[in-house]
Amino acid sequence: MSQSADGLHGAGHTAEGPAPPAAVEQLHAVRLMVNGAAHTLALEPRHTLLDTLRADLELTGTKKVCDMGDCGACTVLVDGRAMYSCLLLAIECQGREITTIEGLARDGELDPVQRAFVEADAFQCGFCTPGQIMSLRALLNETAAPSEADIMRAVTGNLCRCGAYVNILKAGRRAAELAAAPREAGSPGETLPAGEAR
């Protein structure tokens, strides 16, 4: 654990915004492709992808927990691969395709991984859930038929304090099934809520 100048552990890590120095650095035009849409932002080079997604693009589904790559809550897809967005600078993501939890559902239909999480009751408080889902999505991008060990490994970097691991792994297996099979009509939780959440 690093220590800042006054010797207090980790005080330099702020939960809502990047670390000091405070003086505003020069702004750069950063062009990001997020969930299929192009955005041009004026950012300081020190801005992480995570802060940019949450504060500048208002994509708050990606969660900030440790801001140092320990927990996986901020996992997003970068060119289809799972990455910790707290460890990436926005400026280095130019020209790469970024997908967040908000970009997974297509045409009002949940991604198979999201459907599997609903079916398997793979979350409790839900705070780590977007990261877990993105990690498993990345796994399915890589292989259509993951092994048990693949599934377990895919989410080892995503902490779940509610202890829902059994169901998260179950959801991983179910997601692979759902992704492989043609969609079953009328299965529960398959469409996005229209209007109020229920």
Binding site: L59, T60, G61, T62, K63, T100, I101, E102, L104, A105, L110, Q114, F117, V118, E119, D121, F123, G126, F127, T129, P130, I133, P188, G189, L192, P193, A197, R198
Partner: peptide, 16 residues
């Protein structure tokens, strides 16, 4: 039964 908050939690819509 499926959790009442399932959809908002798997889509990132839940507001913390």
């Amino acid at each position: 039964v499926t959790r009442i908050d399932a959809l908002e939690k798997v889509t990132g819509r839940a507001q913390y």
